[in-house]
Nucleic acid binder design. Structure first.
Length: 430
RNA sequence: GGAGAGAUGGCCGAGUUGGUCUAAGGCGCACGCCUGCUAAGCGUGUGUACCCCCUAAAGGGUACCGAGGGUUCAAAUCCCUCUCUCUCCGCCA
């Protein structure tokens, strides 16, 4: 959410910036609504002030016992009339406030000045590359074939259990997934000093609104029938909302958190995309990184957070590149985002495995997270950041595909072996 | 699931026979004073959102005592509904 006064005074700037994102926000209707809202507020507040004055005088006089029955009746009628008018305006105002808030919540964040201008992911800017793409001496297989050959991924029975876009990891597949989760959490907690958290996988509406999933993207979420609860699409939601409606002390900042959770996405509007394998599922595991920082160094923190995520791939020996998302590809709440893309032989291309964003105060304003500035008694919104560190399912895919051998077995990356009881090659179990 | 108690500012906590509540008091925090240093002490200040005014500063107003509704000229205070927390009992991994 942007600041109301800022929006009011910068209608032109905002429509220009949101157009760069490809979003078409009707700010003229917002402006009209805002004007009407203010007019009504002024009127109703005047009436209330008048009423309060009358009531107070009435109370004093009554105490002194200088009022006749007629005075009492007249006063009663007068205030009742004002009350009627207040009620009428209040009803209209309520509708307008709702709409006003909805519109304000629906305005996306303003891209940072360093974000490249562009329409789609094709205009994202490559920042750097790491690692060598392996020169296969044989035809590499995609992970969905290797997964079935090794009997570590079962697609068909997952359809029976649930439906399309679900899968079952089994045997060394599930062990590898678990090893990756532990490896990532250990790296981030021990080396990068994030605090580990295991949050609920179900959150309420206020949390979803706080991070920006609601009200605009309800169709991407799984909602629990009969409850105002949702399955989390990312750990970002519970972890960032951890401090909702709180005032932190400046000395507490920056705060780093990491959390493993499964993530649930309805993926509305992505039919036909990445249908093979486990690249795009309704449920997947992710280790998330979340930061609460002071506004003046949030962009440095974004660089650090991105490097923390990259280190996972470096230690696993997986080639990747980092791209800066262009204005048209930027997420709704983000001011700047780096995507980390890992190389996948089955795509013969780089595929997103992490998305690291600075939301500035956009989420903090929605969530009402501030910090008290030391030495001034004032408060200020924090900046929030997050990034995947990493998407575990896609990391599993990257390992299976990049570390495959000609005979269909998979070499386990060195750093994971201690997590797998020393296992160095994954072969088919009998 | 049953019974009871409760929800007040950054935190603790008073206030529930309706009317100077403009929410006491304490802690914390900020500024100043005092003081070899530190601690203690003294003084002053200290919520949020919105609206108006406005170059700005300052000022004025409205709302907010868990949420929503009701009674009343007037509600933190009375009534109803809901949510959450705590205690005890029951059930349960």
């Amino acid at each position: 959410m942007l600041d109301l006064k800022f929006v009011r005074e910068n209608i032109e700037l905002i429509s220009e910036k949101t157009q760069l994102r490809g979003a078409n926000i009707d700010l003229n209707s917002f402006k009209e609504l805002d004007n009407e809202r203010r007019t009504l507020i002024r009127r109703v507040e005047d009436l209330r002030a008048q009423k309060n004055r009358l009531s107070e005088e009435f109370g004093k006089k009554k105490k002194q016992g200088i009022l006749s029955d007629k005075d009492i009746e007249e006063n009663r009628l007068l205030i009742n009339k004002i009350n009627e008018e207040i009620k009428e305006i209040d009803e209209r105002l309520k509708l307008i406030e709702e709409n006003h808030k909805l519109q304000l919540l629906s305005i996306p964040n303003i891209p940072h000045s360093s974000v490249p201008v562009g329409k789609s992911s094709e205009e994202n800017l490559e920042i750097r590359r790491w690692g060598e793409i392996r020169d296969f001496k044989f035809q590499p297989k995609p992970h969905w074939e290797l997964g079935e050959l090794l009997d570590i991924i079962d697609f068909e029975r997952a359809v029976k259990l649930t439906g399309a876009r679900f899968s079952i990891l089994k045997g060394w597949g599930s062990k590898l997934e678990r090893a990756l989760i532990n490896f990532m959490l250990d790296l981030h907690t021990q080396k990068h000093h994030y605090e580990e958290m295991l949050p609920p996988f179900i959150v309420n509406k206020d949390s979803m609104t706080g991070t920006g999933q609601l009200p605009k993207f309800a169709e991407d979420l799984f909602k629990l029938e009969g409850y105002d609860y949702y399955l989390i699409p990312t750990a970002e939601v519970p972890v960032t909302n951890y401090f909702r409606d709180e005032i932190l002390n400046e000395e507490m900042l920056p705060l780093y958190f990491t959390a493993y959770t499964p993530c649930f996405r309805a993926e509305a509007g992505s039919y036909g995309k990445d249908t093979k394998g486990i690249i795009r599922q309704h449920q997947f595991d992710k280790v998330e990184l979340v930061k609460f920082v002071k506004p003046d160094n949030s962009y440095e923190e974004l660089e650090k957070l991105t490097k923390d995520a990259e280190e996972v791939l470096q230690l696993l020996g997986l080639p990747y590149r980092v791209v800066s998302l262009c204005t048209g590809d930027l997420g709704f709440s983000s001011a700047k985002t780096y995507d980390i893309e890992v190389y996948l032989p089955s795509y013969n291309d780089f595929k997103e495995i992490s998305s690291c964003s600075n939301f500035e105060d956009f989420q903090a304003r929605r969530m009402n997270i501030k910090y008290r500035i030391k030495g001034s008694n004032k408060t200020e919104y924090v900046h929030t950041l997050n990034g995947s560190g990493l998407a575990v399912g896609r990391t599993l895919v990257a390992i299976i595909e990049n570390y495959q051998n000609e005979d269909g077995t998979i070499t386990v990356p060195e750093v994971l072996r201690t997590y797998l009881g020393g296992k160095d090659i994954i072969t088919r179990n009998k």
